[in-house]
Computed example of a mutant assay.
Amino acid sequence: MTSHGPVLPIWSCGGCDLPWPCPTRRRELRAEYADAPVSLALYLGAYLVQAAEDMPWAPAGALHRRFVGWTRQPPEVPQRSTATTPAERGKSVTRPNDL
């Protein structure tokens, strides 16, 4: 069980005090719902409705991005730099400035 649950009615994370769902909880939810992205969005949509009732001063768009919007984005993964990757032998590399 996670310690990164919501603290109501302020909707902060009980584990790290960041706005809930925090980055840790988002990673956990992505893993838990890896094969069911629509279910994840519905689950978080229910929380969105409750949060909107608890925080009527919060802009609707900001709440949507916070609770549901991130579910459609691919998970953050470290990007490997291609600057040090050599081109395959016999193939040229096109750089943006060469276009």
Rank of each mutant, 00 (worst) to 15 (best):
V38D: 14
Q73C: 10
G61K: 08
M1P: 07
G45Y: 01
A51L: 07
S12K: 05
E28T: 10
A34R: 14
R30F: 06
P78V: 10
N97K: 13
L63R: 01
V7Q: 10
T94L: 15
W70G: 06
A52F: 06
L42G: 00
S92C: 08
Y47M: 08
A87V: 15
R89K: 12
I10R: 07
E88R: 14
D17R: 14
P74S: 09
M1V: 11
R27W: 04
E53N: 14
E53M: 10
T71W: 05
T85P: 00
V77H: 12
W57Y: 07
E76F: 12
S92W: 09
R27I: 01
P23I: 07
L99Y: 09
P23E: 10
P19L: 15
G90F: 14
V38G: 12
A31L: 05
L40Y: 04
S39V: 11
L44R: 01
R89F: 14
G90Y: 13
V93Y: 08
G61V: 07
V38W: 11
G69P: 08
P59F: 04
A34G: 05
T71M: 05
P37A: 02
M55D: 04
A46S: 11
P6H: 01
T85E: 15
L44I: 01
E53A: 12
L63F: 03
T2A: 04
R25S: 01
M55Y: 04
R95V: 12
Y33W: 15
G61M: 11
E28A: 05
R89H: 10
Q73G: 08
R95Y: 15
A58C: 10
G69R: 03
F67A: 03
S12A: 10
T84C: 08
A87N: 10
A60S: 12
P23Y: 09
R80M: 08
A51G: 02
V77S: 13
P23H: 11
W57S: 09
V7I: 13
A52R: 07
L18N: 13
P23S: 11
V77W: 00
A34K: 13
E76I: 09
C13P: 01
R72M: 10
Q50R: 15
L29R: 03
E28F: 02
T94Q: 12
V77P: 00
L40M: 08
F67Q: 02
E53V: 07
